[in-house]
């Protein structure tokens, strides 16, 4: 009885909240009204396309567990995807943040949750690293991956007045002054720390890695010239290149980055150092195939929607879609490579 009452109360409240929100968005004038109408037309078509005829999934709210705290790129991604899923599929989707241990807390939570498809989570590149780092027993094979739609490569930034203009100059400078050059990264054991290590490894140079508090901390230190260079993501520093504060010597990918089209890649400059940060989605193992397919297809549609692509462009990220199989392949390859690297370089926590 009491539960029922609670349900009624909660439903009325939810309804009134929805009403308030729609009222608020419709009260705003001309501009936003137009795209909204287009949006409502689009999902009707897509809804018919999705092969959800034989299954009734989802009947309840889908909960996305985000591994990162509010304010970061992964959190924005999770919320954006939730929004697109709501608009396109008409699902009810919530986002919840469970942070800690480079994402291990959130991912382990998803791994251990009931495999009914209603709990899914974000799968950051750390999925391939946390086992080697010793944070948690979890690798890409332990979960079922749903697809990935956001990635961006590492990039090497130096101050605009630095005495080197190409990666080769930089490497030569490092060789002349072994151990003198200090390279900032976004924290010990973070993907950009690995990125800097990969570069040092492939170019056979000796640099001092200095961990900062996230990519922001590393960028601040570089802008303040406390440090000689920084390895962070392309999207985290390209605006400083545009403003002339920094220059970027290389992006660590096979193709040139869309936000830094003038910057050559590491491959172009003769180093095979590809370090890419990706954020995809995962579900616990054992979700039944019908629900899994619905989720995968829904995410694929979401990743290919205009709203989502605009979101990635705005942040300077690459919105290339990786199907679950491609995603697993990429994650597994990274897992093998990073595990080897982390134990070789001795970044193993005790």
């Amino acid at each position: 009885m009491k539960k029922r009452l609670a349900k009624v109360i909660s439903l009325t409240c939810a309804a009134s909240l929805m009403f308030a929100l729609t009222a608020c968005s419709s009260s705003s004038p001309e501009q936003p009204a137009a795209p909204q109408e287009q949006e409502t037309e689009a999902p009707a078509e897509q809804g018919a396309e999705t092969p959800s005829a034989d299954t009734s999934f989802p009947e309840d709210t889908v909960n996305i567990i985000c591994h990162a705290k509010e304010g970061g790129g992964s959190d924005a991604l999770a919320r954006q995807v939730a929004q697109v899923l709501q608009d396109q599929q008409g699902w009810s989707v919530t986002v919840e943040n469970k942070t800690g241990g480079s994402g291990s807390v959130g991912m382990q939570f998803v791994q251990n949750s009931k495999p009914d498809g209603y709990t899914i989570g974000t799968a950051p590149v750390e999925l391939s690293m946390i086992e080697a780092l010793g944070y948690a027993e979890l690798n890409p094979e332990d979960v079922s991956l749903l697809g990935c739609g956001m990635s961006w490569p590492a990039a090497l930034y130096v101050p605009a007045d630095a005495p080197y203009d190409t990666l080769e100059d930089f490497v030569n400078y490092c060789k002349e002054n072994p151990g003198k050059v200090q390279v900032a990264n976004s924290g010990i054991g973070s993907i950009w720390h690995i990125g800097a290590c990969v570069l040092a490894d492939k170019a056979d140079i000796e640099v001092t890695h200095v961990p900062y508090d996230g990519a922001t901390g590393a960028m601040t230190a570089l802008l303040g010239k406390e440090i000689d260079a920084a390895v962070v993501g392309t999207c985290e520093g390209y605006s400083y290149v545009e403003s002339g504060d920094l220059k970027c010597l290389a992006s660590f990918s096979e193709e040139r980055s869309s936000v830094l089209p003038d910057v050559p890649t590491t491959a172009e400059q003769g180093y095979d150092a590809n370090v890419i940060c990706w954020v995809g989605f995962l579900a616990p193992q054992g979700v039944d195939d019908a629900a899994l397919t619905v989720l995968q297809d829904a995410l694929k549609t979401a990743f290919e929607s205009e709203d989502y692509i605009a979101f990635c462009d705005g942040r300077g990220c690459d919105s290339t879609y990786f199907s679950p199989e491609e995603f697993l392949e990429m994650a597994a390859a990274d897992y093998t490579y990073y595990s080897q690297l982390i134990s070789d370089l001795g970044i193993v926590a005790e």
Binding site: K69, E70, G71, G72, G73, D75, A76, Q80, T216, M219, T220, L223, Y238, S239, Y240, E242, S243, D245, A310, F311, G314, R315, G316
Partner: peptide, 28 residues
């Protein structure tokens, strides 16, 4: 002025700005 979020609040705000199609950073 610099696109550096000092805390979580400003990080979300900057994220929102990019969603509105603005490039955050010194050029903003």
């Amino acid at each position: 002025a610099l696109g550096i979020p000092g805390d979580g609040n400003t990080a979300v705000l900057l994220g929102a700005l990019t969603m509105y199609g603005m490039v955050t950073g010194p050029t903003l």
